[in-house]
């Protein structure tokens, strides 16, 4: 699965002056692995290539399972933010996986390029505690505002309540 081969579509994107963005192909889908520093630049280039729609922003917490399918040059971190872009003209998707370290869970916002990422980033912030710098409204979106903790992190318990048989109140 972790073929290091660079697909044609990916090669076009890379600016010859830049160092090459590590890329993989997962089940026939192109995946790029930019760093936090060059993320905006990579996305800017992709956007000029025709990837006009930001379909999805989500994250994965690799706390329990640090092993994953990554190019050798990419250092795995605890969090991974996954950005899905879609090009209507090419009818093509591309996925960006950005490593975000645990001790400094921040990432630049995509709002200025894709305003549609506003709610998606808020969701990632709410459920994973990843901060998007420059986001116009970095507040909780799904959970109550005074909620503590980030539910989709792996060290956050599911919060199951054991079912107890008890007398019906007031019966």
């Amino acid at each position: 699965m972790s073929d290091e081969e660079t697909t044609e579509g990916v090669e076009e994107i890379d600016d010859p002056n830049d160092e090459e963005i590590p890329s993989t192909v997962s089940h026939g889908q192109n995946v790029l692995h930019p760093t936090r520093e060059n993320l905006l630049e990579v996305i800017e280039n992709l956007r000029n290539e025709g990837f006009a729609v930001c379909i999805d922003v989500t994250a994965v917490d690799y706390l329990e399972n640090p092993k994953r399918d990554l190019p050798i040059t990419v250092k795995p971190e605890r969090f991974e933010v996954v950005i899905n872009l879609l090009s209507h003209t090419k009818r093509e998707r591309i996925r960006l996986r950005v490593q975000v370290p645990e001790d400094e869970p921040t990432l630049p916002t995509l709002f200025d390029m894709y305003p549609g990422s506003e709610a998606l980033e808020r969701e990632v912030h709410d459920l994973f505690g990843i901060h998007f710098e420059g986001h116009p409204d970095m507040t909780r979106i799904l959970m109550p505002e005074d909620w503590e903790g980030y539910p989709l992190r792996k060290d956050y318990a599911v919060g199951e309540i054991p079912v107890q048989f008890k007398e019906a109140p007031g019966s």
């Binding site: 599911v158 919060g159 109140p169 007031g170």
Partner: peptide
């Protein structure tokens, strides 16, 4: 009147959210 009957309403519930000590 159900309040006087002590039925359901008014029961204090600690909702455990798994991680923090705070309760709703």
């Amino acid at each position: 009147r159900r309040q006087e009957m002590g039925a359901g309403a008014g029961i204090m519930v600690e909702q455990r959210d798994g991680q923090t000590a705070s309760k709703v």
